[in-house]
Computed example of a mutant assay.
Amino acid sequence: MGEPAEAVASLEGAVRMERAVRTRSQWYAMYLWLFAAWQLLLIPMLVLWRGHVPVAVSMAGNAVIVAALSLYAARQPVVPRRMTVRHLSAIGGWTLVYGLTLVLAFIGPFKEPGVLFTGVAAICCALPPALVALNVARSGA
C-alpha cells in the first residue's frame, strides 16, 4: 500500500470515528428533553398542590429525576462538543425562570396562582432546556 492509499485509509477512519462520535453524542439532547418534560409535571405539583406534603413529594420526585439523569449522563461514553457552555445555559436559564416562578407563586402577586399561571410557568421552565436540546439536535454534536 502506497503513501496516498494509507492517507486515504486514515482519513476514512477519521470520518467514520467522527460520525460515530456525533451519533453517540446525541444522548445529551435526550437528557435535556427529559429534563424539560419533567418541568411540565414538577411546576404544577409545586404551584397548585399546596402544603408541606406536596412540597416533600415533588422535591423527592425531583431528587429521583435529577439522580437518574445524572447517572444516565455519567454512563455516556462521549461528551458532546461545547457541552459545558450548553449545559450552563440550559440549567442557568431554567434556574432563573424556576426561581421567578417560585417567587411569583408563593410571595409575589400570584399568591393564589391559577391554572393559567401554572401552565405558562411550566412551559417557561421547560423552555431553556428544550431550546438547548433543539440546538444540540440541530448541530449534531
Rank of each mutant, 00 (worst) to 15 (best):
M1E: 11
P4V: 07
P4L: 14
A5K: 10
E6W: 02
E6I: 08
E6T: 08
E6G: 04
A9K: 02
A9V: 03
S10L: 13
S10I: 06
G13S: 08
G13N: 09
V15P: 05
V15H: 07
E18H: 11
V21Q: 08
S25V: 07
Q26E: 12
A29R: 04
A29E: 10
M30H: 10
Y31C: 07
L32P: 02
W33L: 15
L34H: 10
A37V: 08
A37K: 10
W38L: 04
L41I: 12
L42M: 12
L42D: 12
I43P: 00
I43S: 01
I43T: 11
I43R: 00
P44A: 01
M45Y: 01
L46V: 14
V47N: 10
V47K: 00
V47D: 09
L48S: 11
W49N: 11
V53P: 08
P54G: 03
P54D: 01
P54I: 02
A56F: 09
V57H: 00
S58Y: 01
S58T: 02
M59G: 11
A60V: 07
N62L: 12
A63W: 07
A63E: 04
V64T: 02
I65R: 06
I65Y: 01
V66R: 03
A67R: 06
A68D: 07
S70N: 14
S70D: 11
S70R: 09
Y72N: 02
Y72Q: 06
A73H: 08
A74G: 00
Q76T: 00
Q76E: 10
P77M: 04
V78L: 01
V79Y: 05
R81S: 09
R81Q: 13
M83W: 12
M83Y: 14
M83V: 15
T84M: 09
T84W: 12
V85L: 12
R86G: 13
R86T: 11
L88S: 08
A90G: 11
A90I: 12
A90P: 10
I91M: 07
G92K: 05
G93T: 05
W94Q: 02
W94S: 04
W94F: 15
V97F: 13
Y98E: 10
Y98N: 09
T101K: 08
L102D: 03
L102M: 15
L104G: 06
A105I: 01
A105D: 04
P109V: 05
G114I: 04
G114R: 04
V115K: 00
V115C: 01
L116C: 03
L116W: 11
L116E: 13
G119W: 03
V120W: 02
V120M: 04
V120I: 14
A122V: 03
I123S: 05
I123K: 04
C124G: 13
C125P: 10
A126H: 03
A126E: 01
P128D: 02
P129N: 06
A130T: 15
A130N: 09
L131R: 01
N135E: 15
R138Q: 14
S139F: 10
G140I: 02
G140L: 02
A141M: 12
